[in-house]
Amino acid sequence: MKRIAWYRVWAVILRHFYNFYHSWDRIVDAFYWPSLDIIIWGLTISALARQGQGTVLQISMIVSGVILWYVLWRGQYEITVNLLEELWSGNLGNLFSTPLTLTEWTVALCALGFLKLFLTVTFTAAVAYVLYAVNIFQLGFALIPFITGLLIMGWGFGLFIAGLFLRYGTNIQTLAWAGGFALMPFSATYYPLDSLPHWVQTVAQVLPSAYIFEGMRSVLFTGIFPADMMVKSFLLNGVFLGLALVYFIRSFRVARIKGLAHLK
């Protein structure tokens, strides 16, 4: 593998920083949707609790689920939307007519995802604490593998969708925002896995995210960190990320056969 030139990685990050500066919606989206989700779900469970159908622990479970879900979504979103930015502005050809490599570009997009994730998690954790006294950090050190696993899965899914864009262009651009939500029902984000229909459970078994959300609930309810689930999750993540990378690289090759500058 060729050595990464970090100044080129920084150039890509700088390009998107400038973009964030001129498009506040690209920064606001780091806070707006997660906060809105936390408010809606928190109020819903609070209302149910007042009717005797929900508990404080359930509020904690749902709100923590929302925060962690945005880890996965953010990882995927930054890769796909930043690729779309290049396609919309016709800049992909310019970028790849420089010595920039695919690896450097991908590293830059993943780094951007990580930076915005940091903003999202910090802000939404504060909102959850202020509104519902839910402290995401009560998950303790377990948060590190949870966030790492979800971020990797987000990156993997993001690369897969980016691969689709490289093949089919912006015709399927909705996937950039909505693609990640296809995984949500099977990830058991807000509810325990065993409360779902059997076929959903079968699908969930191959999703790394389902193990992480189950693990989160285990820590919240019992205080036990399910190491076996985490191992399974990371193994699956490794496989998915590897497959996603292969697909992404192959898609980039297909795009280069057609011509990167022609991609729209």
């Binding site: 973009n19 498009s23 290049e86």
Partner: peptide, 15 residues
């Protein structure tokens, strides 16, 4: 060819 349109010329060239 085109460059990212929201960025200023200086920002584009700096990148």
């Amino acid at each position: 060819a085109r460059l990212p349109w929201r960025l200023t010329v200086w920002e584009n060239l700096n990148v």
